[in-house]
């Protein structure tokens, strides 16, 4: 195939393909990725990615995709299984409605990260924009996770119905950890924040609690995984000082109607 360099990492016996994505339209790029997966490649390295949308969209395979460059919107949308690593920033819609898999962004990410995601993990090393984790939901053993190394914008976890969001606030500037309307309409799941925040930042459907022993164990495990995948040093982060946001009700809008 054009622009594909084949290699294999013999020590792990992983079939690796390298693809030069420069100047290729997303449709063609995604077709190439699919055809490489069908030919049995287990790892695909995309070089020179510059804004191509929908990488990994709808893929259900057990494949690893390494992206060098900035992928476009809806990275890993509707994805169900793959592991994606971005060695740069990512744009909007990372992990939109994803069902399982892992997305690691070694940089910043834009708005609407993990909208409606049902399972899998998203690790963003730096900051995220608005509406992160909106309407995340869990189902049986499926519990989605988003860990943000930096700060999050407004509407974090809005309408959240399940899953786990962690915000570490390790960015260098001194802005607030989260934006306004955090957890508005939240009716399931949990948001962990590395520091206490002002209640004026919260939606009226959530309350602040201290992290307990179970939370700390869970956070330690997630922090180790996050640090391992993003390369960010989390040694100074102490889960014992974390707070968590929980919904006041699983049915926040149950009393709005008369029959």
């Amino acid at each position: 195939m054009d622009g594909v360099r084949q290699a294999s990492r013999s020590e792990e016996e992983v079939k690796v393909a390298e693809l030069d994505a420069r100047g290729i339209h997303y449709k063609e790029l995604n077709e190439k990725i699919r055809s490489l997966i069908e030919s049995g490649y287990e790892e695909i390295v995309l070089n020179g990615v510059n804004g191509q949308r929908y990488i990994g969209d709808g893929l259900v395979h057990n494949v690893r995709i390494v992206i060098n460059g900035v992928p476009g919107n809806d990275l890993g949308a509707f994805m169900d299984g793959p592991r994606i690593v971005v060695n740069d920033n990512a744009q909007d819609g990372v992990g939109n409605t994803m069902n399982s898999g892992v997305i690691v962004v070694r940089g910043h990410a834009g708005d609407v990260i993990g909208y409606g995601m049902r399972s899998g993990k998203i690790f963003i090393r730096d900051d995220v924009g608005y509406r992160t984790g909106i309407h995340m939901k869990s189902y049986r053993e499926q519990v989605p996770v988003i860990v943000v190394g930096g700060r999050a914008g407004d509407f974090l976890g809005e309408y959240m119905a399940g899953g786990i969001i962690v915000v570490l606030g390790l960015s260098s500037d001194s802005k607030d950890l989260v934006g306004h309307y955090t957890g508005t309409g939240m009716h399931g799941g949990v948001i962990y924040l590395a520091e206490e925040i002002d209640e004026s930042k919260l939606g009226s459907e959530v309350r602040i609690f201290q992290a307990d022993k179970t939370d700390i164990e869970r956070l330690n495990a997630l922090l180790a995984e996050f640090s391992d995948l993003t390369g960010l040093d989390v040694s100074k982060v102490d889960p014992r000082s974390f707070v968590k946001l929980l919904p006041v009700s699983h049915r926040p809008y149950g009393n709005m109607y008369v029959y």
Binding site: V112, I134, K137, Y139, Y159, A161, R251, Y253
Partner: peptide, 21 residues
Amino acid sequence: VSGTRMIPQGTDALSPAPHHD
């Protein structure tokens, strides 16, 4: 219904007014 919608039993299924993307 829970299995088909893939949400826990007994929680309200809230469809937001807009698609947030």
